[in-house]
């Protein structure tokens, strides 16, 4: 940043973003576009909300796969495998002999530890298996059936989402919104270098957000194994439950919007390096900013609705 960027007498000139913003075609169009985006996300998030609120109370459970028929399983018991311990083969053998489960299914249970769930047991069987696993040096405890109408936050047996990670990621996106508005404010005062710097910061923060989301998707889709209450296949993919369908659709479309925003910001950033914008002509920066903030607002709501509630 050089002092040549700064306008000669900033204090005497009313800053453009404080003046009553005149309506320009670009601004009318971008707000209309945002209105259409509001309606688009209403379709997705509204569907999520009514699915979430109207889901029957036995849709998800700690012991059975989502959407399993639980009416006759009220007395079902299971065992939660907290740690496999030294004798993995022994543990697998004990589970297989107690439940008659096949090799692949047992392997999934072991992989999901510390939240591996063995189901299909009655009270006696659960007690015996817990004792047998304890003898083998594994950590295990018996669990009774607990149902809910939706995966509960902070419940690793039904909900695979990491709230800690995503809270940090939320704040990263909020920070990128702040740097974006600082970039707009800088160019409104004619400080071109400062504007480019803040645009770059926004770009980096937005890219970080996307990177974390890609990491999260990778973990969910194939990186980790989850217990049966989350997915019968061990991986959290769109088809395993209505929650998974909603999660991937809503966050996926938001992610696509962020990606589009990052591309737009990259173009704007290059434009700012080439000196395309000035205190009189900064429409592209402002419109990209409005879009970026909108994506941020959607995420704020989405984070609360999908992750926390």
């Amino acid at each position: 940043m050089t002092s040549a960027d700064a306008p000669p007498h900033p204090a005497h000139r009313p800053s453009a973003d404080a003046a009553p913003a005149p309506a320009t075609p670009g601004k009318v169009a971008i707000w209309l576009f945002l209105a259409t985006e509001i309606m688009f996300f209403t379709g997705l998030l509204g569907s999520y909300i009514v699915f979430r609120a109207g889901s029957p109370p036995t849709s998800y459970s700690n012991l059975y796969a989502p959407a399993a028929q639980l009416d006759r399983l009220k007395d079902a018991r299971g065992v939660v495998l907290g740690a496999v311990g030294p004798d993995a083969d022994g543990v697998a053998g004990a589970i297989a002999s107690a439940t008659g489960k096949g090799e692949a299914e047992v392997a999934r249970i072991l992989a999901a530890a510390p939240h591996g769930v063995v189901n299909g047991l009655d009270e006696k069987g659960a007690g015996e298996l817990t004792a047998a696993l304890g003898k083998l040096g594994a950590k295990a405890e018996a669990a009774s059936l607990r149902t809910s109408n939706w995966p509960r936050p902070y419940d690793p047996l039904t909900n695979p989402l990491s709230i800690d990670l995503t809270t940090v990621n939320t704040f990263i996106l909020i920070c990128s919104s702040a740097t974006m508005v600082l970039a707009v404010s800088a160019i409104q005062q004619g400080r071109k270098g400062r504007c480019s710097l803040f645009l770059l910061a926004t770009l980096v923060l937005g890219g970080t957000f996307l990177g974390v989301q890609v990491f999260e998707y990778h973990e969910l889709l194939e990186g980790r194994s989850y217990p049966i209450g989350i997915s019968p296949t061990g991986h959290f993919t769109p088809e395993v439950s209505l929650f998974a369908s909603c999660f991937f659709t809503v966050t996926g479309f938001h992610g696509l919007h962020v990606a589009a925003g990052v591309v737009t910001l990259a173009i704007v950033f290059l434009g700012s390096l080439l000196g395309r914008f000035s205190a009189q002509d900064f429409g592209a920066v402002e419109y990209a900013g409005l879009y970026w903030h909108f994506v941020d607002v959607v995420w704020i709501l989405l984070f609360t609705i999908v992750y926390l509630i």
Binding site: T36, M39, G43
Partner: peptide, 10 residues
């Protein structure tokens, strides 16, 4: 502008 995005989402 106000209705079509909902069909798009559907």
């Amino acid at each position: 502008a106000f209705a079509l995005p909902v069909l798009t989402s559907a």
